[in-house]
Nucleic acid binder design. Structure first.
Lengths: 353, 353
DNA sequence: AGCAAAATTTGAATCGATCCAAGCACTATG
DNA sequence: CATAGTGCTTGGATCGATTCAAATTTTGCT
């Protein structure tokens, strides 16, 4: 555990200047063969690990890595189906340019702020699922290029990539309404900082997360347009995980007026709902229809396969990387097309309903 | 797009030394209130983004990030179920200590070497699935703490965390043999650099990947012990992806002697096999039994749920991080216990078989 | 006011490399 | 033999911060 060998040590050992020693490693072709050998031999002898990237970095300026930040725990990137799929796209784009990926997150707020401040990256891709705006502020302070995902706050100074949530939610609601459904229930993404439980339309419309707000708006405008009594539609706000979604299903199916159609704001919730219904022997789509949102790969594999509002998730990831790498000083806002994918989880309501 | 503001600029603007300016940001409590305010004001005025981590890094020495390396494309971390689960464990341990995660990989060999050399990390966790030993050599050159996963080469100078592959594979084979199976087939992990197709026992026993070698050994020692004609057991080597596994199933089920038991060296292959069998209406476990290896979360969710040799995958990830963070100069080799999980994909062979 | 102790501030040194203008050695040319 | 040209090497400057011993200012006390 001795002091590590520096380039200067190697240079001294080889009897050359540090400039030449540096050249041996970074542009070997410009130094004389004999000298190069001598330096390599010295490096070998001293056990030199090669130019330390920490030193190089300061001079070079570029880290060659993209930071991906979220306010969730780090495992979010590997556990959440949507995040995972975006990361796939990010990976593809990074592989294509040889860039690395730095995952930045933390268990608590203070640590998160520090991690964002000290992350060695060339730019950030920010997942705005929770604690979005605070995270964005933290990131903005770094004065590096960054792009937000799912951050629909209309701020022209912030680059973002997303889809038209209002339109997407609208299509989902219209699909079910046209099939003849009249009794709806909504599984909503978080509207406030933390916690889950039944909520009201008014509260949902004032959600601090714009994605939640927009999807709510899309659902309800369309339902209203089809003459549904919007005030009677129960909304259950989850934390987009299994436990709170199951609690939501319990709640929605404990009422006297059972819903025949469920609008889930994420595939993750929709898939959990499907599972919950199957466990109780409630037939999907015979008795209840379910529509998801996102279009994660898993949605095609469930039984029955999920009807959902598919975002071009991988493409979102790819573009996010391009957006950082090609940043020209002016933040871009990209709205990508959604595709409504009708699969096996939706059908007309049971006869008589 | 002007030259970024440095701490020295702020110091000059505020009329203090750069030493004091530095203290304002890193130990604000030791500078006089009035001065602190003055420096903050100067920073504000100049649009200073805060101390640049690139500069700090050189002095501090520690990056506070763990590198995770593989020779696969970056998306491997998000697409492969085993990798994903290990990453979950790594995430947990990193969150617990506030460390970040740097994903290091590359599409081609040259780029990979460069990325390993220049990764800004405090240590490496190396996934040795493919190109293991080359990757290990590259990593070793950095002279940073590192730990390999799934690298059973018996080299005392290399830290590793894994399971007893021979024993695990043995249990799987014994389970099937005891159920009465006599006609086996093996879906093997890669034995050589690239490519897939039918292979021989001899070639598999000389696989360049020790994990493959050990599992083969475990399977065949146990089968031989149960009086099975080991030379008649077909082995198909895949690339552990869907396409090559499907090709393997086609091959194995094109023969005249249909197998009643499939030993898959990974859950990923086993799950694909299950799917392939279902598509063809071949009943599992009625007509064919399948045993996987790994114990990824998905294995519990398939229909039927998969009988498999479960590694403590998340724990492997957690320990890998601890192994880097607590590195004391001597590489540790940890062998964790496996657990054989019997689920619904195995049963006695059809009567008369 | 005078002096010691405590609290701040200073500025040079350091972290580990890369870059580049200038210098040197050697060869080719008139 | 002087001159220009080519090819390699040198060493100082720089990247952006932190650190720490020494200098300075402030505070506390008589």
């Amino acid at each position: 555990m001795t002091r590590p060998v520096r380039l200067a040590d190697v240079a001294r050992e080889a009897g050359v200047s540090h400039g030449t020693a540096s050249n041996v490693f970074s542009r070997p072709e410009i130094v004389r063969d004999e000298v190069r050998e001598r330096v390599f031999a010295a490096a070998q002898k001293l056990g030199y690990a090669g130019p330390d990237p920490k030193g190089r970095l300061l001079r070079a300026g570029k880290v060659n890595a993209i930071g991906v930040a979220t306010a969730e725990p780090l495992s979010y990137f590997f556990d959440d189906p949507f995040a995972r799929t975006v990361m796939s796209g990010i990976s593809q784009a990074c592989d294509a340019t040889g860039a690395g990926i730095s995952l930045v997150s933390a268990a608590n707020q203070e640590q998160l702020a520090w991690n964002i401040q000290s992350a060695l990256v060339d730019g950030f891709i920010v997942f705005c699922v929770e604690g979005g705006s605070r995270l964005v502020e933290l990131t903005r302070k770094r004065k590096l290029p960054f792009v937000t995902l799912d951050f629909a706050e209309h701020d022209e100074t912030i680059a973002t990539i997303g889809v038209d949530d209002v339109a997407g939610a609208g299509i989902a609601a219209r699909h079910l309404a046209k099939l003849g459904h009249r009794r709806f229930a909504v599984l909503a993404l978080p509207t406030i900082e933390a916690g889950y439980g039944p909520t009201t339309l008014e509260r949902a419309q004032n959600a601090i997360y714009s994605g939640t707000r927009d999807r709510i708006r899309g659902y309800f405008e369309e339902l209203a347009a089809h003459g549904i009594d919007v005030t009677a539609v129960p909304i259950y706000e989850t934390e987009n995980d299994e436990a709170s979604t199951r609690a939501g299903m319990e709640h929605l199916f404990a009422s006297t007026e059972l819903p025949t159609a469920i609008l889930a704001m994420s595939d993750r919730m929709a898939l959990t709902a499907l599972e919950w219904l199957r466990e109780r022997g409630i037939d999907v789509p015979g008795e209840v229809s379910v529509v998801g949102f996102d279009g994660v790969p898993e949605s095609a594999l469930s039984v029955p396969p999920l009807t959902t509002v598919a975002q071009p998730i991988v493409e979102i990831g790819r573009r996010a990387v391009r957006s950082i790498l090609d940043f020209d000083g002016t933040p871009r806002r990209e709205i990508l097309d959604i595709e409504f994918v009708v699969r096996g989880s939706t059908a007309p309501p049971p006869a008589g309903d």
